[in-house]
Computed example of a mutant assay.
Amino acid sequence: MAGLEIAFFGSSLVSAYWNGAATYYRGIIRALAARGHRVTFFEPDAYDRQKHRDIPDPDWAGVVVYPATESGVSWALEKARGADIVVKASGVGVFDDELAAGVLGIRRPDGLAVYWDVDAPATLAQLDANPAEPLRALIPKFDFVLTYGGGPPVIKAFRALGAQACVPIYNALDPDTHHPVPFQPKFFADLTFLGNRLPDREARVERFFLDAAARLPDKRFLLGGNGWHDKPMPANVKALGHVYTADHNALNCSAMAVLNISRESMAAMGYSPATRVFEAAGAGACLITDDWVGIPTFLEPGREVLVARDGAEVAEQLAALTPERAHAVGQAAMRRVLAHHTYEQRAVLVEALLSGMDVTHLRLTEGV
């Protein structure tokens, strides 16, 4: 098919600082570019992200940084006018409602407008709590709602809001970015968790990570991410602060095991694997995850991932883990994600949807 011109409004492509969706954006957009599509990513100069860039402007996407002001939003929308596809991602962080309405306003008569939700459970909870939210009236006007997780419950909820179509485009692996690297002593740990301190994550980090650390005082635990510097924690936990994406592989490859902890809303909805799941698996790390509905869709419990329901079970899994067992689980996970969960495969689905092709033969497309 001929390459599409795509204008994409999101939080940031070049900075992962307070921006957990960055690696998801990069994986999807880079894979679309490899298939001949031209993406321009529009991001606001907000939250000091431009001061904490992880990457320079890439050669596989244009990047337009606009002032985080009403006039800046209007300028960016005009610059995006004329694209074949216009995308508004959730969680841009400034002027989200204005951007959603604006993207619909610049859609060409023969073009498409897409709402791409990178935190669907939280969006749905917000819409449910406040019927007057402007986004509620806009959802039916988009040609597609795409989400980076949520499965059947999210599809059902968006369809109930009037979405014309809702399709999960799940997180995945970019094997050129996340892959095995040599062990680095500074990142050695028995268990590592990486995630920013957020309101609907903190209690679960206490329950799954800090509780496990308290139960295993002879083990070393690393905690990466923004916001944890003043959090009380056991003496065997070291807080690293923000970990730049260039260090993610070494972080994943230098621990006996890596822990995934879903945010409360995502765990409740299910079918919402975080980017970290695929990044860790792609590096061959042994992954322990909190329990949520839909895990077998992505990794086989007990063989490709270890599952725990609370900190006590995390501690049990870790105490029983040997280097040989950890290696076997990590290698099995890496084989699975390389075979079935790469951004190249996700891009095939996105391309098919946007070009009006039949997608019923593709994986992970329930609910179209």
Results as ranks from 00 to 15, higher is better:
187 F>T: 06
169 I>P: 08
185 P>Q: 13
177 T>Q: 14
189 A>Q: 12
183 F>R: 07
181 V>T: 13
173 L>K: 11
178 H>C: 00
169 I>C: 06
186 K>F: 05
172 A>V: 07
180 P>M: 06
186 K>T: 12
188 F>I: 00
172 A>L: 09
187 F>Y: 15
164 Q>L: 15
188 F>G: 10
165 A>Y: 00
166 C>V: 14
191 L>T: 11
179 H>P: 00
180 P>C: 05
180 P>Q: 05
184 Q>A: 15
175 P>A: 06
177 T>H: 09
164 Q>G: 06
183 F>P: 00
176 D>V: 01
167 V>S: 08
171 N>P: 01
170 Y>T: 12
178 H>W: 09
178 H>M: 05
186 K>W: 09
187 F>M: 08
171 N>D: 11
189 A>L: 12
184 Q>R: 15
192 T>E: 06
170 Y>L: 08
167 V>R: 15
163 A>S: 15
182 P>I: 02
164 Q>E: 14
187 F>A: 06
165 A>C: 09
174 D>W: 02
184 Q>Y: 00
179 H>Y: 14
190 D>W: 08
182 P>E: 10
167 V>I: 13
184 Q>T: 05
185 P>Y: 03
183 F>H: 15
189 A>M: 12
163 A>F: 08
177 T>Y: 01
188 F>S: 14
184 Q>W: 00
170 Y>V: 09
194 L>C: 05
189 A>N: 09
167 V>A: 07
178 H>T: 04
174 D>H: 00
188 F>N: 11
190 D>V: 01
166 C>Y: 02
180 P>R: 12
163 A>G: 12
193 F>T: 00
192 T>C: 10
192 T>F: 13
186 K>C: 07
174 D>A: 11
180 P>L: 05
176 D>C: 04
163 A>E: 10
172 A>P: 03
190 D>P: 04
181 V>H: 03
165 A>Q: 11
187 F>Q: 08
165 A>L: 10
165 A>F: 04
164 Q>C: 03
173 L>N: 13
170 Y>I: 03
188 F>D: 14
188 F>W: 13
166 C>R: 04
183 F>L: 08
176 D>F: 02
174 D>E: 11
174 D>V: 01
181 V>F: 02
193 F>L: 11
185 P>L: 09
169 I>D: 03
184 Q>F: 00
164 Q>W: 02
187 F>P: 07
167 V>P: 00
167 V>G: 00
186 K>L: 10
190 D>T: 03
184 Q>K: 13
169 I>Y: 09
191 L>E: 12
194 L>N: 08
189 A>G: 10
181 V>E: 10
176 D>N: 08
171 N>T: 13
193 F>P: 00
166 C>A: 15
178 H>I: 01
184 Q>P: 00
181 V>G: 03
183 F>W: 10
190 D>L: 07
177 T>W: 12
170 Y>Q: 08
177 T>F: 07
164 Q>F: 01
178 H>R: 09
165 A>W: 02
170 Y>S: 13
170 Y>G: 00
170 Y>E: 13
167 V>E: 01
180 P>S: 05
171 N>G: 00
193 F>D: 03
170 Y>K: 05
172 A>W: 06
193 F>A: 05
192 T>S: 15
179 H>T: 04
179 H>E: 01
172 A>R: 09
190 D>Y: 06
174 D>N: 11
171 N>V: 01
169 I>K: 09
179 H>Q: 06
